[in-house]
Structure formats: structure tokens, C-alpha cells
Computed example of a mutant assay.
Amino acid sequence: MSKFVQGLAATSLLGALVLAISPSLAQGAGSGTGTSPILQRIAERNALTIGHREASVPYSYIDREQKVEGYSVDLCLKVVEAVKERLGKPGLQINYVPINTTNRIPLVANGTIDLECGTTTNTLARHEQVAFSPIFYITGTQLLVKTGSGFKEVEDLAGKRVAVLQGSSNEQSLRALNDGKKLNISLVYAKDLGEGALLVETDRVDAFAADGGQIKVYAATRAQRKGSLSVVGRLLTYDPYSVMIQRGDPEFAQLVSRVFAETFRAGEAEQLYAKWFGPLGIEIDPILKAAFEIQALPR
């Protein structure tokens, strides 16, 4: 990753952190429901509702035993423990509701879901509808190529064929680079992640531009031959993942931010990353480690 991109990502990260952390963080943790409508709602239901993805391995998914699991879910469960302690309800129930890219924001905004634990990018536009936890994962547009192809950056693909998901931010970023640098890349549309990867594996395209985290997982778990696919290149976009919560509740946002800060400070977030991504051979990126350190606010 170039120093420019590192600097840009760090600047964007700091800006997102300021928005993600509640302005009332410096206040005491308090007890009971306080003035928090979310905590009051949870107490009345005697249940906290988690929104989860069904197949976003290893972030948030349903396993073979129909259990909701994943890196994002484990982080949310730390918030659940803090809520139990705050409300004095050790037997608080957890309800799980499957979500998708279409309904996840409305379900958080209307209070159906208390914590959205998936793969949602923390953006300024979305802050108009929901609030966010601190950042727990950082990804961006990268390139899936055949191992040994010699392609290392998007500029190496001048005059080549590259698959994208139509209408995605990945397509937008690649198109902008293609036009700006006059790379003469031919864009080929894939309907989903699996098809994009298959186009690379069958030599119908030279690369697939998609979310770096997702294609790393695909290369590690679903490639036709182990080690046949590689993810290369700098981050062409900056996509930080956070947990969504309902807007307008600074007390609950404070609780969530405190839990994440403590998790980062204790090194538990890095341990959870190793638990879920280590078996896939995906090491933690230095920029994510830096994010954990930056957000490990003192008590």
C-alpha cells in the first residue's frame, strides 16, 4: 500500500472514529436503563435482538448446526454481556433476526433490531439514518487474480478484462481509475462473488475487482484448487465495518463505544480476529491493528 493511500486511509479512519464514538463517552457508565430508549425497550422485552447475515463467513453466518456465529457476532456478544450487567438481567434473552443489504438499515432505524452484527460499511451518508459502533474491520476494493499471473496492481491490467459486480462501489472505483489513467480495461459484469471468481478461474477475465475481505475468504475456502487464487493490490476504496445501532440514543451509543474500547485495549479484538481468520490463513492487516490501537480509549 502506498504512503499516500495509507495516509488517506488513516485520515478517513480518524474522521470515522470521531463520528462513531459517542460525544458523551466521557460520562460515567451509569446503571439501569437511565434515559436510554433502547435499554428501556430491551428491558421491557427481556430480550436483545441481534441482526445477522446468513452466509457472510466468517463475519456473520449460520453454521451447519443452525447456530449464528462469526467475528462480528462475537464482538456484539460482548455488548450483550455489558447490557446484561447494566440492566441486572443475567438471563436476558438473545433473539436473532436474519438481515440482508436491503432491510438491514430500516430494521435498525425502526428499532426492530438493537444491534446489527454483519458486514456494514460505516459511511457518512448512513449516519443520517443510523448510528455506528467503533470500527472493527477495514477492507476495500482489491483484485482477485490467478496465482502467478504477475498482476500486482490495477495498472498492470491495462488493456485486460476485469470482472465487477454491476452497480457496486468496486465498479465505480475501477471505472474512475480506468477513465482517469486511460488504462483501456474492459469491464465484464458478474452477477455475484462466485461468478466473478469463476470468470478468473476459467480465464475468461484476468481479474475480479471486489471487496478485499470477501475475496480473501473465497480464495482461502472455495477456490477450485488450493492456492490457485490470490488477492493483490492496494485498497482502491476505504470500507470500514461497524455495528449499526439506532440513532438518537447517546447513552446506548456510549455503552457500545465503551465495550469496543475495552475490547481493543485488552487485545481481545485481535484474538477474535485470529480465531475466525487465522484458520483461513488470513493475517490481520497493519491498518486494522492500528485502528484497534487508535480506538482503545482509556477509561
Rank of each mutant, 00 (worst) to 15 (best):
G51F: 03
K152F: 02
L255C: 11
G194D: 14
Q142V: 05
M1F: 09
E128Q: 15
A20F: 05
R86K: 15
G30F: 04
I62W: 01
P23D: 10
T49D: 09
S228I: 00
G281E: 06
R126Y: 09
K84M: 13
K160R: 14
K275Q: 14
A220Q: 05
I50R: 03
V73W: 02
L229G: 00
Q142N: 12
P37F: 04
L236D: 03
Y238N: 07
I215P: 02
V243M: 15
E81A: 14
Y61Q: 05
A125N: 10
S173V: 15
F208L: 07
Q224T: 07
G30T: 09
Q166C: 07
A219T: 03
A9T: 12
S60I: 01
Q40G: 09
E153T: 14
A190N: 07
H127C: 12
I94S: 03
A190M: 05
D203T: 04
E262H: 15
Y273R: 03
K78I: 09
G278C: 04
V205E: 01
S242K: 04
V57D: 00
L229H: 01
V217D: 02
L14H: 10
I99H: 00
R41S: 15
Y61A: 04
S242Q: 11
A223G: 09
I215F: 02
K191L: 11
S31Y: 07
F260Y: 15
Q27L: 11
A43G: 01
S186A: 13
T221R: 10
F292G: 01
Q246I: 06
S168K: 06
L75K: 07
C76Q: 04
W276E: 05
T221W: 02
A176F: 04
D285W: 11
Y218Q: 04
N178M: 06
V232P: 00
G28T: 12
R234M: 11
S173H: 08
A190I: 09
G70I: 00
V79R: 11
L255P: 14
T49I: 14
Q66W: 11
S149W: 01
V243E: 08
R86I: 07
L288I: 14
D239M: 12
Q271P: 00
A253K: 14
E65P: 00
K67M: 05
Q214G: 06
K78Y: 08
L115S: 05
A176E: 12
V73Y: 01
G88A: 08
G70D: 04
G233Y: 03
T102L: 10
F208Q: 02
F132T: 10
S257V: 10
A163F: 06
L177I: 08
V80F: 13
C76G: 12
F208C: 04
D156R: 08
T120L: 15
A253E: 15
S186M: 02
